[in-house]
Design a protein around this nucleic acid. Structure first.
Lengths: 204, 204
DNA sequence: CGGTCTCTTGACGGAGTTCAAAGCTAGTGG
DNA sequence: CCACTAGCTTTGAACTCCGTCAAGAGACCG
């Protein structure tokens, strides 16, 4: 794992190729095409990749680091929709697919190393390597499964239980997130999360 | 539209083929394969298609009617995750993909006419007609976009505003749903939704 | 009709919010 | 390496949205 990670630092595309090869084999020629289709990007902490209202140009694949996507409400408060760490994809799907103004912002929580591809770039890539439809299909299906589960959790459970589930499912992620971002993700205020975690007889 | 619907009543597969052909053309041979791969099913109101704990066998495509998928909490209360009307797909994705026990129930709200396909059936269909990967990829991507939007709504807005958004987006669906199912979908109790809708100076 | 399911209405309670202030931590520049 | 600032976390008190429980009124079947 450590060897793999250090390899990605030198050749970031390896991270993506590794992710794809979990699902379908790639020929050397296809790998070369992939390396051309994706551009690398390095972003600093707090750097903004997408602003609400812009048309989404790129899909982002996280090689290393941590991103968040969030909506801003009428009172100026953030609501985290999703996080993305190593090996995860991130995009405002509605804006990307329909080329409409984004309803979300995407921001780096840590210094991050990314691969980016434009929507036209992705479409022509899918024509060149049709097998990638399988990869992206499975990617979306898995994401869909996760969203369904998260909806069930958000509708059924209390804030305390939602926090517990999040710790269970993504223990490593929790450690890297400031508390206020966890609060926003599970749908409570930072103040309430703080009280919740510090209250006596806290079962979790 | 009326002509199309009555056609589907006689030949339910046409509904699915119509849905697929929005995205990619099909040869007569491929249409024949599709007709064999999917089985028709008719279910009565209140009939249960999937019970929590079972391994999901089928994906469902709604030709006509109305389904709901819901989770049941520890206190025995339902929480609607999703509805599906004509032309929509429905499945517990996690259970389907991993062949693990379902966390959701699927039930018909109205008498419905469905097409069903098993997971192995779907996989072999995708091998026979690889172009269908494009259809299912786009299907999942669109569903993902909708889930992201819904999460933003649920995290940012009050019950009143969530109800408003739902009416805006799916006005036809609202009319066919009992109020208690709308309440469960937007994450409030039926009692509260009733009070909300009947309170004076109600802007919506 | 008669029973079951759905919607309504009210009083009360509690989970989570708001606002404000103070302590703490971490990054930043001199 | 220390001082300063800005942002994060904590804590408290008042408040609100929404849930719970309970009882009654419709509405929809058989």
């Amino acid at each position: 794992m450590v060897i793999l990670l250090s390899l990605f630092l030198i050749m970031p595309h390896q991270s993506l190729i590794h992710s794809i090869e979990q699902i379908l084999p790639l020929t050397p020629g296809q790998k070369a095409i992939l390396k051309e289709a994706f551009h690398t990007a390095e972003v600093k902490k707090k750097e903004v990749l997408l602003k609400e209202g812009e048309i989404t140009k790129y899909s982002y694949f996280v090689v290393e680091g941590l991103l968040r996507m969030y909506a801003t409400d009428d009172n100026g408060f953030d609501h985290n929709i999703q996080f993305a760490i190593n090996g995860w994809w991130m995009s405002d799907m509605l804006s990307l697919l329909n080329q409409t103004p984004a309803s979300f912002n995407i921001e780096a929580i840590e210094d991050s190393r990314l691969l980016t591809i434009s929507q036209p770039g992705k479409e022509s890539l899918l024509q060149t390597i049709p097998g990638l439809n399988i990869y992206f299909r499975q990617l979306s299906e898995n994401a869909l499964a996760a969203y369904q589960q998260r909806f069930a959790i958000n509708l059924s459970l209390t804030a305390q239980e939602r926090y517990g589930k999040l710790c269970e499912r993504y223990p490593l992620l929790i450690q890297r997130l400031p508390q206020k971002h966890i609060a926003s993700y599970i749908g409570v205020t930072p103040e309430f999360l703080s009280k919740m975690l510090n209250r006596p007889f806290n079962s979790k």
